[in-house]
């Protein structure tokens, strides 16, 4: 169930686009209407999710720390693991976002005979994750050659670097190899590591399968089934989409429409799924707060301003008589009884 349902969903989506795009006239649906709708839902959904998060109060000051906090002057503070001010938080967030630093400390718990419990360092998720995300990023940036006219210079540089091995024609991109490899490794990790397999859900598998299908249709188009993949016509469509005058200039391969439809699916799925970690990483209170709760008072936004602080001295004033009666020690004795 965990594997068949998401796999089946991706296959059905691909078939819908493959067969649907062959019906005369439906190219406008798959080539123009669906991408526009998907982009609108992506942007709208993304903003909706972020604003919804921004409306949720953070009742407690909860940065996760794992180093020496700011203390006496001769004790060395761990500025990245326990930041106390904005610039340290920014440095920590930067390394988190660009290098996935927190995954570097991932461990794997194992029980051996004895019984003995060990926590071994396990950096696979970090490595495969980094490989995947950077390949994906480079591919998306490279795709801008289809959307920008004239093509800006830095894209030529990126294309050159990515195709540096000069294998075949069209030139092999390194990121095409690394994205498939990374997806297989990430999926393999979910299969082979028993603990991770147990907690994996269909909604962990679906994005993996979907992105695998997107990357493999793209790779098939570029290197294997070029018939009907006329980049000039495709660029005309893509530039048309972003200048709001889309045209479908010729007959394009069903592989292209499948690729585009799966990308549209990804865009629609994105804001309503765990893929929102892209926005979420910026809004994680465990990461983006400074550990300064001893210097700055964190006010719980839920607090009713009419409820005033109630310190112990006021509490004792209120209950002193009962406390004395019950023999509970008090800080301030009862006033002397005057009359006899």
């Amino acid at each position: 169930m965990k594997y068949t349902f998401p796999l089946g969903a991706v296959i059905v989506l691909a078939l819908i686009a493959w067969l649907g795009s062959q019906i005369p006239g439906m190219q406008y649906l798959f080539g123009i209407a669906v991408p526009y709708l998907a982009m609108a839902l992506f942007l709208g959904g993304f903003c909706y999710r972020v604003i919804k998060w921004a409306k949720s109060p953070v009742p407690f000051h909860i940065p996760t720390t794992c180093g020496q906090e700011y203390s006496l002057p001769w004790i060395k503070q761990d500025k990245l693991e326990c930041p106390v001010n904005t610039s340290q938080v920014v440095a920590r967030m930067f390394l988190e976002i660009f290098l996935f630093r927190s995954l570097w400390r991932n461990t794997k718990a194992m029980v051996y005979d004895g019984p003995k419990l060990t926590y071994e360092s396990s950096k696979w998720l970090w490595l495969f994750g980094l490989l995947f995300h950077y390949s994906f990023l480079v591919i998306v940036i490279r795709h801008m050659r289809l959307f920008l006219n004239p093509v800006p210079g830095f894209l030529h540089g990126l294309e050159f670097a990515d195709g540096i091995l000069q294998i075949g024609a069209p030139n092999l991109y390194l990121t095409d190899v690394t994205i498939l490899l990374a997806l297989i490794l990430l999926f393999g990790r979910r299969l082979i590591n028993r603990h991770v397999r147990y907690i994996s859900l269909p909604n962990d598998m679906f994005p993996l399968f979907l992105i695998f299908a997107i990357a493999s249709t793209g790779i098939m188009m570029r290197y294997f089934f070029r018939s009907g993949v006329d980049i000039i016509n495709i660029k005309q469509l893509a530039v048309g989409l972003v200048t709001l005058h889309p045209v479908i200039a010729g007959k394009l391969s069903p592989l292209f429409y499948t690729h585009l439809f799966l990308v549209s699916t990804l865009l629609v799925y994105f804001p309503f799924s765990k893929l929102m970690h892209m926005g979420g990483v910026f809004l994680s209170p465990t990461r983006n707060l400074a550990n300064n709760s001893r210097m700055v008072r964190h006010i719980n936004p839920w607090n009713d301003p009419n409820i005033k602080p109630h310190p112990y001295s006021a509490y004792e004033d209120e209950f002193r008589e009962n406390m004395v009666e019950m023999g509970i020690p008090v800080e301030k004795p009862l006033p002397e009884k005057t009359e006899a």
Binding site: F42, L43, F46, C47, V50, I51, A54, M144, F147, L148, N149, P150, P152, I232, Q236, V239, G240, V242, T243, L244, H245, A249, G279, F282, L283
Partner: peptide, 26 residues
């Protein structure tokens, strides 16, 4: 958060601003 979101939306729609409505010659 609002400036962050605006930057994000401008970034995603970059091709729209870059081409400013002109698809160029085929």
């Amino acid at each position: 958060i609002i400036p962050g979101l605006i930057i994000f939306v401008l970034f995603v729609t970059f091709p729209v601003w870059y081409n400013h409505g002109d698809a160029g010659a085929v």
